[in-house]
Amino acid sequence: MSRSLRLNDMDFGISTYAEEFALLRPGETNSAVPLPWLGRAILEANLAGLQDVIATEGEICLIWARGQKEAVLSQLESRSFEWTSRVQTWSLPVWFEEHDDWKLVCKATGLSREQVIAQLLKGRYPVAMLGFLPGFVYLHGLNESLHVPRKATPTTQIKERTLAIGGKYLGLYSLPTPAGWHAIGRVSVSVLDMNRMPPVCVSPGDVLQLKQVDEREYEQLLGSSLESFQESGQ
């Protein structure tokens, strides 16, 4: 079943499936607000009957409790969501460790490891979306010269807090999991804190920057809190 909805002055098509969830897709003409940002705002509005929100760059998925479809969708009619959380900027300490994946990155980009690192350090990386597995962060802003296609066969296990390149994205793996992206460095601090809600400390729209550290500094900073790497004046 399809219908439409106007949300934050944007038109959305709504498709519902088995009366259990809906996918919201923006009409072609507008893309004023990034969808993961809007998804976070909908989640924080605590709509009655709504259980979960999943937001990717092209779709917002709303999952409701049994029988709550109309209740949830009617609360969304012609609504604007003010997401008051301020945009935060962090400067993350990264150790660009030796790794087999560097060979592929250098080959695909035609750049040396030092050139890749220099280019990476110049960038600002806004959080595009959260997805895949807990603590995984998709980042925009990767310079086009550093785009490297994902691996055909994923690595069985990547180390926790690994920075990686996948296509047009920079990504951060918080947990040791299988990985199809190219590992380029380790971050000393974790954005994942499963003892609190929300369990991921960065939000869509927040900006990450990279600060190079060597292995010794990386190890000294392990276990530091993310807060101490927040940029002041933001």
Binding site: R40, Q51, D52, I54, I63, L130, G131, P134, P198
Partner: peptide, 11 residues
């Protein structure tokens, strides 16, 4: 685990 799918936690 309801309410945490946004943060990529499976239900």
């Amino acid at each position: 685990r309801i309410g945490s799918a946004f943060f990529a936690f499976p239900r």
